[in-house]
């Protein structure tokens, strides 16, 4: 009974602007309220969130002067917590959360095909390096390689454009690749992704 009276006193002190009164109220009842929430949700983080939301509601109601249940502070807070627990389960029922188990993890089936930032940087770097290496090739080979790889032209089109036979275009492409490999080996360049 004494405790209830003290709660009522602390509540009115808090409404009058005594912030320490709130600290006392929270410390006095945190264990009971938190345990109540945890006993329903069985998750520390969720319990922490609901506990926080409960007291945010308490603070807002008290500061707005809308509290009119003097002497019944704890049951009032418990009711708010209870309602928030129900809200939590309603929300989860609408959006069920899939939790993987040790036997099956959804992320082994669902992958993100896009490269992460590091791999994208490496890819860009490799492509830049290759462009620089292509500049080292003889003109005729470079021309064929650019048309084939970057412009996606067929060897028939390349042959027509450079006014050579298809076999010559194919040969130039072959030498372009061989020479690129030689430049890479000679300069000990590592191209990886």
């Amino acid at each position: 009974m004494d405790n209830t009276l003290q709660d009522a006193t602390l509540v009115s002190k808090y409404i009058q602007g005594d912030e320490q009164a709130l600290e006392q109220l929270i410390n006095r009842h945190s264990h009971r309220i938190y345990s109540f929430i945890y006993s329903k949700v069985y998750d520390r983080d969720v319990a922490e969130d609901i506990f926080q939301d409960t007291f945010i509601k308490v603070i807002r109601t008290l500061k707005a002067g809308s509290y009119n249940e003097e002497g019944k502070f704890l049951p009032w807070v418990m009711r708010i917590a209870h309602n928030l627990v129900i809200d939590h389960f309603r929300k989860n029922a609408r959006m069920p959360k899939f939790q993987g188990t040790d036997d099956f993890n959804i992320f082994t089936v669902l992958g993100d095909p896009s490269l992460n930032a590091e791999k994208q940087l490496i890819k860009d770097q490799v492509e830049n390096d290759v462009r620089e290496l292509i500049k080292e090739l003889p003109e005729d080979q470079r021309e064929v390689l650019i048309m084939r790889i970057y412009k996606d032209m067929s060897f028939k089109e390349i042959a027509a454009k450079t006014d050579v036979s298809i076999n010559t275009a194919l040969g130039r492409m072959r030498y372009a690749i061989i020479n690129l490999r030689k430049i890479i080996e000679k300069n000990k360049i590592i191209l990886t992704n």
Partner: peptide, 19 residues
Amino acid sequence: LKPKKETIRFLLDYSRALR
């Protein structure tokens, strides 16, 4: 079974800041 100190600190700071 008690909330984290950070949670209580947040609530007290929130209360001080709220008008």
